[in-house]
Design a binder for these strands. Structure first.
Length: 450
DNA sequence: TCTGGGGTCCTAGGACCC
DNA sequence: TCTGGGGTCCTAGGACCC
């Protein structure tokens, strides 16, 4: 087994095909992450079709390979697929973010024992980039394989590893090896011009990291179908047609020129949002205000967790609208309003007061609403964290109260303590009927059968 | 009946200044 | 009658990601 030390060899990297020494990046991506987390505690579901639903049990957001094989697709509405799902005995879960968050932490910590911590960039809940600059070229494949085995063995979560000279190319490799797990062993290293070109030819433009729906269609109109064709376009063209510097960077990365570096972990967010679909459409301003107050409480908790205070509060609502002829579904317009606070704050009641007031600006009597949200921004370090000489004592006391509420809500069930404005009936609350136990973060939900 | 949630970055264009 | 140009800052909106 490769140990940590075996990666940190200082000998020069040899045999690099592009002429000068350059590093490689790996993207480590958990396979069907949410489903994998559920399976860790339900080994009986191994090789069974499994899916996980979005909040509100709205649509499918994670599928096991078996579920994919049945023909279930990403983001298909649950209510539509339900008959099919039941017929094929697909095991179905509501999302359990406590569980996934904790499993994510375990995966990332494992990666940090395999390479130096500074060379791990946690990119999302289920993905991390690794800087493999310390690994000799001829050992890349072996190292990638080792990463895959170690993570699976230590956490129970299977991952795929793509390795290439740039981040974008590593994503290309990762995607390809996931497509054919049996052959690739969930690992792919593309480290020569030939391998890179081959991989690009096998990748549709829409599957490139950074090319979304809009650009994919635009590229198609230019007659560009696969990543190799895109790679051959010149950089000025990309700047003009693919969103300025974003497009330019993309082309360079496809050509093997690294322009996206490892990024420091973003510990402080620049904005914080809490938004939800309602469990059922909502009509009254009272319900909207309760929902807004509740979401604001969440935002305030998140603010305090990162020791920030917000100076801007904005809210939005989305009315339910009937689809037009021929459409099966239509998003309503987003109606928003914001306010600049007299001073930045992380105190729940101050934020709630501002947010609820904004509801009057956006609410129209007679409309039916399906979604609402709160965003706080203009974040600054929270001056009230430590008792502060220059703010009134009452604000310092409030801060202590907030700390107590956060502690109680964290250690007991969610929302054991809440503000009256959040309501008690909560007609609007989302559905979440199929959630598994929070095995790893609640004592009373520990796994007992494994 | 029922179609997720939470982020980031970039650009264009307006306001303002000298 | 004629009314510049360049810089900065801010915001809304668009695009993307998982």
């Amino acid at each position: 087994m490769l140990t940590k030390n075996s990666y940190i060899k200082t000998q020069p990297v040899t045999g690099y095909p592009f002429g000068r020494r350059r590093g490689f990046y790996a993207i480590v991506d958990c396979n069907s992450f949410y489903c994998s987390c559920e399976r860790v505690f339900r080994p009986d579901l191994k090789e069974q079709p499994v899916i996980v639903l979005s909040n509100n049990d709205g649509c499918v957001i994670s599928m096991s390979d078996e579920a994919k094989k049945l023909g279930i697709t990403m983001t298909v509405p649950y209510f539509q697929a339900k008959p099919f799902i039941e017929k094929h005995k697909v095991e179905t879960f509501s999302s359990n973010y406590n569980l996934y968050g904790d499993m994510s932490w375990r995966v990332m910590e494992t990666l940090k024992t395999i390479v130096e911590e500074d060379n791990v960039e946690v990119y999302s809940v289920d993905e991390a980039f690794l800087d493999l600059k310390d690994i000799p070229h001829e050992q890349l494949y072996e190292a990638a394989l080792q990463i895959r085995y170690t993570v699976e063995q230590w956490t129970g979560v299977a991952v795929s590893v793509g390795v290439a000279p740039t981040k974008v190319l590593s994503k290309v490799a990762n995607r390809l090896c996931k497509k054919d797990k049996g052959v690739s062993n969930c690992v792919m290293v593309i480290d020569t011009p030939e391998k890179i070109n081959d991989a690009l030819c096998r990748t549709k433009v829409g599957d490139i990291w950074g090319v979304g729906h809009q650009y994919a269609e635009k590229l198609k109109r230019f007659g560009i179908d696969d990543a190799y064709q895109l790679r051959c376009m010149n950089e000025e063209w990309a700047r003009k047609n693919l969103g300025g510097v974003t497009g330019l960077r993309l082309i360079k990365e496809l050509k093997g020129e690294p322009v996206m570096q490892m990024e420091d972990e973003l510990d402080e967010k620049k904005m914080i949002a809490t938004t939800r679909m309602f469990g059922a459409p909502v009509k009254t301003i009272k319900d909207i205000k309760e929902a807004i107050a509740t979401y604001t409480s969440r935002c305030a908790e998140k603010l305090r967790r990162q020791q920030s205070a917000a100076s801007v509060v904005s809210i939005f609502v989305v009315p339910k609208v009937a689809p037009k002829d021929g459409e099966r579904f239509r998003h309503g317009p987003t109606i928003s309003a914001y306010t600049v606070l007299p001073h930045a704050t992380s105190l729940t009641h101050e934020l709630i007061k501002a947010a609820v007031k904004l509801v009057d600006e956006v609410y129209k009597d007679g409309s039916l609403y399906k979604k609402a949200g709160v965003t706080v921004s203009g974040l600054v370090p929270d001056e009230s964290i430590q008792g502060n000489l220059f703010v009134p004592e009452s604000r310092n006391n409030h801060r202590m109260l907030m700390g107590m509420i956060d502690n109680i809500n964290f250690s007991m069930r969610d929302d054991a303590l809440k503000f009256a404005a959040s309501g008690t009936e909560r007609n609007w609350k989302m559905r979440q009927e199929l959630r598994s136990p929070r095995y790893t973060s609640r004592w009373d939900e520990l796994c007992e059968t494994v």
